[in-house]
Computed example of a mutant assay.
Amino acid sequence: MTTTLKHSLGTQTEPGTLRIERTLPGPIDRVWTYLVDPEKRRSWLAGGTMAQAPGAVFELRFQHTELSDEVAPERFAAYRETHVQHSRVLRIEPPTLLVISWGSEREDASEVSFELSPQGAQTTHLVLTHRRLPDRKETLSVASGWHAHLGVLDEVLHGRAPQGFWTQLEAAEAAYATHIR
């Protein structure tokens, strides 16, 4: 069975850099809270803690089993358990910009930026850029992961229960495999 992707693919702007854009329901302040409030962030990505100043370390606590109605496929069995990742706030300019290190506190870690801009009173444009990915394999993994997580965010912001996180991740992975250099 082939799953159709609900959202367009991101683009690889250069080797090691992925950019995904979404128009999300809700005013910018509401979308911002889903980036920085750990309980709200937990509904689509990861709970944990949140730092409010550049240089501060925070915790992302991934609980993928809570994201939708699916159990992780066998090849993702490790993600059935809680996974903890430490990151660092690099820049924070509420409610328009959040830049964090990804998966490491080291200076050479990859980094993710979330840029928000209002599109009218009830929608927000998100540009997610993940930089300094070391190779194609990691870029493919990150692309499909962000694609699926942002799909869950879209559902949550619409007030719907997310369906099929793992199905969407696998469909995105197959699509990005032909899209990523």
Rank of each mutant, 00 (worst) to 15 (best):
Gly151Asn: 08
Glu93Lys: 02
Leu116Met: 05
Thr124Pro: 11
Ile100Ser: 13
Asp154Thr: 13
Glu155Ala: 15
Val99Cys: 07
Ser141Ile: 01
Leu128Met: 15
Glu107Gly: 03
Leu97Ile: 10
Leu116Trp: 07
Gly159Thr: 12
Thr129Lys: 02
Ser104Cys: 11
Leu157Thr: 13
Ser144Phe: 03
Val99Pro: 01
Leu116Ser: 02
Ser101Gln: 10
Arg131Asn: 10
Trp146Ser: 02
Gly103Arg: 13
Arg88Glu: 08
Leu140Pro: 08
Trp102Lys: 06
His130Leu: 09
Gly120Thr: 05
Glu138Phe: 07
Thr123His: 12
Gly120Tyr: 04
Glu93Val: 09
Thr82Tyr: 02
His125Leu: 11
Ala148His: 02
Asp135Leu: 09
Val112Arg: 05
Ser117Lys: 09
Phe114Tyr: 14
Ala148Pro: 00
His83Gln: 14
Val84Arg: 10
Ile100Arg: 08
Ala143Thr: 02
His125Ala: 12
Gly151Lys: 03
Ala148Gly: 01
His158Thr: 10
Ser113Arg: 11
Val127Trp: 01
Ser113Tyr: 04
Leu116Asp: 01
Leu140His: 05
Lys137Tyr: 12
Arg131Lys: 11
Gly151Phe: 01
His158Ser: 14
Pro162Ile: 12
Pro162Gln: 14
Ala148Arg: 01
Pro162Asp: 14
Ser141Met: 13
Val156Ile: 11
Leu97Gly: 08
Gly103Phe: 11
Leu97Pro: 13
Val142Trp: 02
Asp135Glu: 09
Gln119Ser: 15
Thr129Cys: 05
Ala109Val: 07
Leu157Ala: 10
Leu98Trp: 08
Glu155Lys: 15
Arg160Asp: 03
Val142Pro: 01
Gly151Gln: 02
Ser104Thr: 08
His149Arg: 02
Pro134Gln: 12
Leu150Ala: 05
Ser110Glu: 09
Val84His: 07
Arg132His: 15
Val152Tyr: 05
Val99Ser: 07
His158Asn: 14
Ser141Pro: 00
Ser104Glu: 08
His149Gly: 01
Glu105Ala: 11
Ser87Gly: 13
Ala148Thr: 03
Arg106Ser: 15
Pro134Lys: 08
Gly151Cys: 01
Pro162Phe: 06
Gly151Asp: 13
Ser144Asp: 03
Val142Phe: 00
Trp102Arg: 04
Phe114Glu: 06
